[in-house]
Design a protein around this nucleic acid. Structure first.
Lengths: 132, 132
DNA sequence: ACACCTTTTTAGAATCATTATAAACTATTC
DNA sequence: GAATAGTTTATAATGATTCTAAAAAGGTGT
């Protein structure tokens, strides 16, 4: 089990549910965006046994804290997560309410000149809103 | 009444409530960030007559649609609005959960090289997350 | 294998921002 | 002033997320 190690090394017990969620999230070379609800649907389709919503929330937040997932800053009724945890940016199609990845080379370097004393920059994220 | 014209020109009837909200939001040379709840508190303090929550939501969204307010894309339990509708960016202090303006000159130009057919760029917003 | 302790899962309830409803009210036009 | 369309309001409804507390499962030592 390739995710067993990963979980254990992060201090997360490799439970059946977490391993299952890992399969759905990470067992692909394509990264993708999802909401908790998307994830719930995906799991329902892939397997017979269900995972409770509370567990999905717990696990996704645990993975986020460990750096395996990123939250995408967007105003939407649901929170979006990204399995692509590298520094990159997004288009948001306002009409279709869909997120599209922007490669880093599509945006170019962003220099933040201002400094706040005692604070470090954790991330720099660009959201480009699209309309028709 | 300086806001009466503004509202009428936008096709919004200048009601008592809307004029009141204009006073609170725009009668200052400093721009600021707020949530619906902040706005509600501010109005309670400034006046005796109260405005219902539903009206605050309606009005703020109407103003946003007209371009008098901007939503700030950030994952928070409450939606943040900005009275500064010029193109600019934000720091978000994760610990204090506070937004700080970044002047455009603090970030420099951002070139979006990728194009999506049939879509126009409506806005480009940078969120810089800060940690200790 | 068993007992022990801690972490995790779970169903369901609770929370809380936001939106919908539908009746009363108000601005505008004629 | 009457008619009409747009607004406001209190309240209910919605829906994503978090909380709760009890049951289940993982890990460790014997």
């Amino acid at each position: 089990m390739k995710y067993l190690e990963k979980l254990r090394n992060s201090g997360l017990r490799p439970t059946k549910q977490r391993l299952q969620i890992c399969e759905v999230l990470f067992n692909t070379n394509k990264t993708f965006h999802f909401t908790i609800n998307d994830l719930s649907e995906k799991i329902k389709k892939q397997t017979s046994k269900k995972i409770s919503l509370a567990t999905l929330y717990n696990t996704v937040h645990a993975f986020e804290k460990k750096g395996y997932l990123k939250q995408i800053p967007i105003n939407s009724s649901q929170t979006y997560f990204d399995t692509n945890v590298t520094e990159h940016h997004h288009f948001y199609d306002l009409k279709e309410e869909k997120l599209i990845d922007l490669k880093n080379s599509d945006v170019g370097p962003i220099n933040i000149l201002k400094k706040i004393n005692g604070k470090k920059i954790k991330s720099v994220e660009v959201l480009v809103k699209l309309e028709d």
